[in-house]
Lab assay of single mutants.
Amino acid sequence: MDALKSAGRALIRSPSLAKQSWGGGGRHRKLPENWTDTRETLLEGMLFSLKYLGMTLVEQPKGEELSAAAIKRIVATAKASGKKLQKVTLKVSPRGIILTDNLTNQLIENVSIYRISYCTADKMHDKVFAYIAQSQHNQSLECHAFLCTKRKMAQAVTLTVAQAFKVAFEFWQVSKEEKEKRDKASQEGGDVLGARQDCTPPLKSLVATGNLLDLEETAKAPLSTVSANTTNMDEVPRPQALSGSSVVWELDDGLDEAFSRLAQSRTNPQVLDTGLTAQDMHYAQCLSPVDWDKPDSSGTEQDDLFSF
């Protein structure tokens, strides 16, 4: 819950932080000083300027060897085509990944977070970031790969997607708890209302004896509580940590079903599988986004697919 609360507080303090972009060759504004600060901008989305290598189908939802083989196929196909790589912007948030063309600003792909089953910074092609997700059109699994400016960037994108998945799962947990509370309150309110109706004398007997209905007592009954809980029953509950912020979080049926399955089948359902080692994760978390744009010590960066 700490990640969720800190993310909400950060967004309320400075929503404009989320509009910064990394990996864009110096076009961005001043960047936060450390990885923790940038992680807090996830709610509205972190932007990464990358190059799209392509996509291939895979048979399993996750796995280092599986993704490595898929990336190898994608890279080989991209090299064989001889075409310049498409420059894209990857927007990562707890909602998922939005992929747009840098030149036309046209939407290429919009992947809900619950469809993503794996992401990684490839070991062999260490400047490549990739994720595996279920197609929104059918049940097939797709591996999408992107060329980053350097290994640090690939690791940073991988960690960002993993963190977005974690925050999304926490949102789901909060929403589920809130819905259970509202359902319980609604049920209790309905029981109270039913009890009051059972003990209320029939209207005919009131008229016969000349008694008047006590409207004041009726007004004191917990009807307002019942209506408050039943009027918006169809509205999706939102985490309290975000009250007053500009973010509107809505959970669709697909996300609810997917996270429910994860909660039942996995020990740590909030953790998205990645190909990063503990050492890689520690190294990337210690980086400032400013470091992502620094040239690798191995030599001059080449803006070309064939540089790796």
Results as ranks from 00 to 15, higher is better:
2 D>A: 05
3 A>K: 06
3 A>F: 10
3 A>I: 09
5 K>W: 09
5 K>H: 02
6 S>K: 14
7 A>K: 12
9 R>A: 12
13 R>N: 14
15 P>F: 01
17 L>N: 13
17 L>D: 12
17 L>R: 10
18 A>W: 11
18 A>C: 10
20 Q>T: 15
20 Q>K: 15
23 G>D: 06
23 G>A: 05
25 G>D: 15
28 H>C: 13
31 L>R: 12
35 W>D: 08
35 W>T: 08
36 T>V: 15
39 R>E: 15
41 T>W: 12
46 M>E: 14
47 L>E: 14
48 F>T: 02
49 S>E: 07
53 L>V: 00
55 M>N: 04
58 V>Q: 01
58 V>C: 04
58 V>D: 01
61 P>C: 13
62 K>C: 03
65 E>P: 07
66 L>D: 06
66 L>C: 08
66 L>A: 05
68 A>E: 01
71 I>P: 00
75 V>P: 00
75 V>Q: 00
75 V>Y: 00
75 V>D: 00
76 A>M: 08
78 A>R: 09
80 A>K: 06
81 S>V: 03
82 G>P: 01
85 L>D: 01
87 K>I: 14
88 V>Y: 15
88 V>R: 01
91 K>A: 11
92 V>C: 10
94 P>K: 07
95 R>C: 03
97 I>N: 00
100 T>N: 12
102 N>A: 01
104 T>C: 08
104 T>G: 10
105 N>P: 06
109 E>L: 14
109 E>G: 11
110 N>T: 13
112 S>Y: 11
112 S>W: 13
114 Y>W: 05
116 I>L: 02
122 D>P: 00
124 M>W: 05
124 M>E: 01
125 H>E: 00
127 K>T: 00
128 V>F: 00
129 F>A: 05
129 F>P: 00
130 A>S: 13
130 A>H: 00
131 Y>V: 00
132 I>F: 14
134 Q>Y: 05
134 Q>C: 15
134 Q>W: 07
135 S>Y: 10
135 S>W: 00
136 Q>K: 14
137 H>N: 15
137 H>R: 15
139 Q>D: 13
139 Q>F: 05
141 L>C: 08
142 E>R: 15
142 E>F: 10
143 C>M: 01
145 A>M: 00
145 A>D: 00
147 L>M: 00
150 K>C: 06
153 M>N: 14
156 A>H: 05
156 A>F: 14
157 V>H: 00
158 T>C: 14
161 V>N: 00
161 V>H: 00
163 Q>M: 13
163 Q>Y: 14
165 F>C: 02
169 F>A: 02
172 W>M: 02
172 W>H: 03
173 Q>K: 11
178 E>K: 09
186 S>W: 03
186 S>M: 07
193 L>K: 08
193 L>N: 04
196 R>P: 12
197 Q>L: 04
197 Q>T: 13
201 P>V: 04
203 L>Q: 07
206 L>N: 05
209 T>I: 12
209 T>W: 04
210 G>H: 10
211 N>D: 07
213 L>I: 05
213 L>P: 15
213 L>K: 10
218 T>W: 02
219 A>Y: 10
220 K>F: 06
220 K>R: 08
220 K>Q: 07
223 L>N: 09
225 T>G: 08
225 T>L: 05
226 V>K: 06
227 S>T: 13
227 S>D: 13
227 S>N: 11
229 N>S: 12
229 N>Y: 12
229 N>E: 06
230 T>H: 03
232 N>R: 08
232 N>C: 06
233 M>Y: 09
236 V>Y: 06
236 V>W: 09
238 R>D: 06
239 P>A: 14
240 Q>K: 15
242 L>I: 05
243 S>D: 08
246 S>F: 03
246 S>M: 06
247 V>W: 09
249 W>T: 14
252 D>N: 12
253 D>S: 05
253 D>A: 11
255 L>M: 08
256 D>F: 02
256 D>G: 02
257 E>Q: 08
258 A>W: 05
258 A>E: 05
259 F>I: 04
265 S>L: 15
265 S>Y: 07
265 S>A: 13
266 R>P: 02
269 P>F: 02
269 P>T: 03
272 L>T: 09
272 L>Q: 07
273 D>K: 03
275 G>V: 02
276 L>T: 02
277 T>C: 08
277 T>R: 09
279 Q>D: 11
280 D>S: 06
280 D>G: 07
283 Y>N: 08
284 A>N: 14
287 L>Y: 03
291 D>P: 10
291 D>I: 10
292 W>I: 04
294 K>R: 07
296 D>R: 05
297 S>E: 10
298 S>Y: 04
299 G>V: 10
299 G>E: 07
301 E>M: 06
302 Q>F: 06
303 D>T: 06
